[in-house]
Design a protein around this nucleic acid. Structure first.
Lengths: 336, 336
DNA sequence: GAGAAAAATGTAAGCGCTTACATGAGCGAG
DNA sequence: CTCGCTCATGTAAGCGCTTACATTTTTCTC
């Protein structure tokens, strides 16, 4: 029962079973023929020694890590956690471990990413977490790479969720409420959010309105709160479209504190449909992103790249869903 | 500029620099003396070849993975994501990658855990995600192990957050509101939650009340909703203490749907203080867990175990904080 | 029952590094 | 100028596996 501290090697198994290490390897991996009796003896030895192959040995010899990386900015909001969840689930099914790397507050991101790239068979990177030249370096190294929520990158797959059409839908919905003075909460990040602002600007323009300049803020509840205080203190917009739900929740908090009613005095919308959106007061109108699916698809795409079952880079856009709740105003004519 | 697909090895660097691989290794790792000129030549070759050492080679030769594992049940709620966040941050600082493993819906958990254990220098496991015999196996193998939110395990560190005293505090607070008929939402899981129920039961008993039997439910909003419907349909309790915030949010939803006012008709409390707790309607009285800190401490404890800077297993209990909001009733005498 | 093909097993060369030990070069002291 | 050190560097043995190839054993076929 008492195991030695160090676990057994394939040599010890071979010796105990009275065969060569090659036979042990074959018996265990099923590559090459092994007589039934021999296999049994090997398995018994494996059992008795509680042998598990060293991953390092296996990986070094076979040339694959059986691990994938994923790089995201943060894990504090629900967004990335959900994507990660979907990713891990699929990756694990495909027999790959997942190594995570969060860049928030990290100084030497390029080094960390390079380091990560040396211990995986492929990796997923969220848009805007890693400098373009580093991404290019990864691509050039031949490492299979999938980008999430980013515009196309030569040599890498891209998986993102639909922004343009859903943002337009949201804008039209708000126009339908009769709002004309809009504010956009959350600056550009050159990724998803820029697409949304552009699309909303377009719709507003089509309706003869001057598209507002997005007001930058941190994509957190606190960031939204701070921005909300300032947006709601001056000449008040009728509707504040927020870059994500967390910002929207912060803006709602600010409105509440200023004694303003939502949506009575100002309509507020978010993006993502995180858990808190449903439970907020008022419940938040938002656009549901298929976050888990995003991760799952990234994992599948990456697997295809790694196994080489697909040659050309692919680019997937996953549809989103407008979720209308109370924060954008009363809805006499119920819309799906 | 055009790199070959496969990245360079230490041999190519050595050749280019006109030295032996040993010298390259020494120059790069700073082990052993290297003449300034030589070092320079090596570094130039490294630069030109864009050489990065193969992790597998390094690990196999040096015997360390420079990676830690973490096993959790799920990533869908905010709880585990926050812990993971704190964990990754510290682990990364300490130069260790983090490999994650989520057990939710996974069939062969023991195999997955064993597999993980072969590719890390140490791992963290959340209580109740892995069978006790598998945990024992890991411990026996000599792999440094830290358990989170679990009662003590021989041979492993334990990091958990305080439950007994904070649960008692919560119970006393509710008694102070005058509530006498309690319900406990969420069954035992033999970990944190059992401790809380026990403590609450104790306090109620001390006050001459019969402690209620906890009603099992899934630890999700949906689980809480389902249980809430049933708890609130029969003879109604005055206060429902929920195992975590998600359950509490579900119960609030159920109450709302049944036309009951919270806290007017029934008081509801959660546990964890997730983001949605603050934004819920009504805002949720709950107990804040230092989730990020939990992860950070686990990472540090694990590091001590791995480097051997500490010999005896340690057991840390992190204090929690009662957060009183609206969902448990009006508070004439403001309590900290 | 001999010979050939098929099946089973063994041998040994890596995979890309680290590092103990051996060797060689440079330098001050006598 | 030589001896004995010290500093630099090279050599080679692993680390624990996989796998191509060589070798031995079985199993058929006629």
């Amino acid at each position: 029962m008492a195991n030695s501290d160090e676990s057994a090697t394939i040599y010890e198994v071979a010796q105990r079973a009275g065969v060569s290490i090659a036979t042990v390897s074959r018996a265990l991996r099923g590559t090459g023929p092994v007589a039934a009796k021999t296999r049994e003896r090997v398995l018994r030895a494996v059992e008795e020694l509680r042998f598990t192959p060293s991953r390092l040995g296996v990986s070094l010899a076979s040339g694959r890590h059986a691990a994938n990386g994923i790089v995201f900015p943060d894990l504090s909001g629900p967004y990335f956690a959900e994507v990660l969840l979907g990713y891990e689930e699929v990756a694990s099914e495909l027999g790959r471990s997942v190594i995570i790397l969060s860049t928030r507050g990290r100084a030497a991101v390029p080094d960390l990413v390079r380091d990560l790239s040396r211990r995986v068979d492929g990796m997923v990177i969220f848009g805007q977490t890693v400098r373009d030249d580093v991404v290019a370096e990864i691509v050039a190294s031949g490492l299979p790479l999938v980008m999430i929520a980013r515009d196309t990158v030569a040599g890498a797959d891209v998986v993102s969720s639909e922004n343009t059409e859903s943002a337009a839908r949201l804008a039209r919905h708000l126009l339908g409420h009769g709002y004309r003075r809009f504010a956009l909460a959350g600056g550009h990040d050159n990724g998803d959010i820029t697409q949304r602002w552009t699309s909303i600007g377009q719709v507003l323009g089509d309706h003869g309105l001057t598209p507002p300049e997005p007001s930058p803020c941190e994509f957190t509840v606190e960031g939204g709160y701070a921005l909300g205080r300032s947006l709601l203190s001056g000449p008040r917009p009728e509707a504040i479209v927020c870059a994500d739900d967390q910002v929207a929740l912060g803006v709602i908090l600010a409105a509440e504190e200023l004694g303003l009613s939502v949506p009575g005095d100002v309509a507020i919308t978010g993006w993502d449909d995180i858990m808190a959106a449903r439970h907020a007061r008022p419940a938040l109108t938002t656009v549901r992103q298929p976050m888990r699916d995003l991760g799952a698809r990234a994992a599948r795409a990456l697997d295809e790249l790694i196994t080489g079952s697909r040659d050309a880079p692919s680019s997937q856009v996953i549809p989103t869903e407008l979720v209308v709740r109370a924060s954008c105003g009363p809805h006499p004519l119920e819309e799906a």
